[in-house]
């Protein structure tokens, strides 16, 4: 058998298992993600990434999701992609701005509507993608100007620690860091979408595990409720949704190997992960019964986090509409996957 179109991943099963174990323990002990940077350094993460970026990123974000962690490691993923077209940071750390909706760059004179993954204390600049005559400009807006338009995101997922940016920030274009950021921004969004897709898959896998455990233990009519076909089939459908998201995610990482491609595949990976969380949470909530709706039961935290992550870098409904509109106006039906 010749290798032909098969690709090998650098991360072997044993290494992946070791990394997973270390990250799972660390995140379970520190769900706010504090110390994640140190742990990654100890694990030699830069080398792991160099060896197998898709495998390592997926593994890290799946665990991040499983633990419902709230670190800003996603910021690092985006900033690493944006860095080459931005001046070296001078005054301090940066934080990317995540537009809501389909994550389209913001109009220069429109109020900002988006998210930050955490507070602006210690952050010097917010990187804002700005739509400029068909190009994307990357503005480095002083954090204190953005701070005035922020408030805790709270809402459906009070544990997220995210900030909602909702209001005007004057003269976005004055702080141009790059006027030709289209390519890096597209790429940053694509890689970010794959990371978030993995995180959603992690949250979903954890929620399904909770539902399997609950239904296997809970007895009604003298038998475990997981012996009822209606319950079993819901759990199977949740499993299918997760596995299909995993498959598209893997295919999208492969598509990203092409220097100019992969953004369509990454959008689909994010879309399918978002779709999966809607499926999984609907089924998990049903089979966990009233317990799953209670504050003391862990399920609600997964439901809320998955929904918030779905909104990050484009929710599945918004992306489905965007994709379909493109198809209607003649966009090629990219098969995304080849044998």
């Amino acid at each position: 058998m010749t290798p032909m179109t098969r690709t090998t991943t650098g991360l072997d099963a044993q290494t992946a298992e070791l990394l997973t174990g270390s990250l799972r323990k660390m995140l379970a002990d520190n769900p706010d993600g504090s110390g994640l940077g140190d742990t990654l350094a100890e694990l030699g993460w830069d080398e792991v990434l160099a060896d197998d970026r898709p495998g390592a990123t997926t593994l890290l974000f799946v665990e991040h999701g499983r633990a419902l962690a709230t670190s800003r490691v996603l910021d690092e993923v985006l900033l690493a992609e944006l860095a080459p077209s931005l001046p070296a940071p001078g005054t301090g750390p940066r934080a990317p701005f995540y537009p809501l909706g389909t994550a389209a760059p913001v109009a220069p004179d429109a109020p900002l509507a988006g998210l930050l993954l955490g507070g602006l204390d210690g952050v010097a600049e917010v990187v804002v993608p700005v739509a400029l005559d068909g190009q994307v400009g990357l503005s480095l807006v002083p954090a204190d100007l953005v701070a005035a338009a922020t408030r805790p995101a709270g809402g459906f997922d009070p544990a997220s620690r995210w900030l909602l940016v909702d209001g005007p920030v004057a003269e976005l274009t004055r702080y141009a860091g790059s006027e030709d950021g289209s390519r890096v921004w597209d790429r940053a969004v694509a890689v970010g979408r794959l990371a978030v897709a993995a995180e959603i898959i992690g949250v979903c896998a954890a929620a399904l595990a909770i539902a399997v455990e609950h239904t296997s233990a809970r007895v009604q009519y003298g038998r475990q409720i997981a012996t009822f076909q209606a319950v079993r089939h819901r759990l199977s459908e949740a499993h299918v949704a997760i596995e299909s998201a995993r498959s598209v995610l893997a295919a999208a990482w492969k598509a990203l190997e092409h220097p100019d491609g992969g953004s369509g595949a990454a959008r689909l990976a994010k879309l399918r992960a978002g779709w999966a969380q809607a499926e999984v949470m609907r089924h998990a909530l049903q089979v966990c019964g009233a317990m799953g709706l209670s504050l003391e039961h862990p399920l609600h935290r997964h439901v809320s986090r998955a929904a918030a992550l779905d909104a990050l870098l484009g929710g599945h409904r918004a992306l489905t509409g965007q994709l379909g509109a493109e198809l209607l106006t003649g966009a090629e039906l990219d098969p995304i996957v080849e044998i």
């Binding site: 098969r6 596995e243 299909s244 998201a245 498959s247 598209v248 893997a250 295919a251 689909l268 879309l271 399918r272 779709w275 409904r317 992306l319 489905t320 509409g321 965007q322 994709l323 379909g324 509109a325 198809l327 209607l328 039906l333 098969p335 995304i336 996957v337 080849e338 044998i339």
Partner: peptide, 24 residues
């Protein structure tokens, strides 16, 4: 119509992604 077409296409890509792995 757009959302419906987008959904049908996304289902197909998911199937292809999964099925390609099984064929391999």
């Amino acid at each position: 119509a757009a959302a419906r077409l987008g959904e049908a296409y996304a289902h197909l890509v998911a199937l292809r992604a999964r099925s390609a792995g099984t064929v391999r």
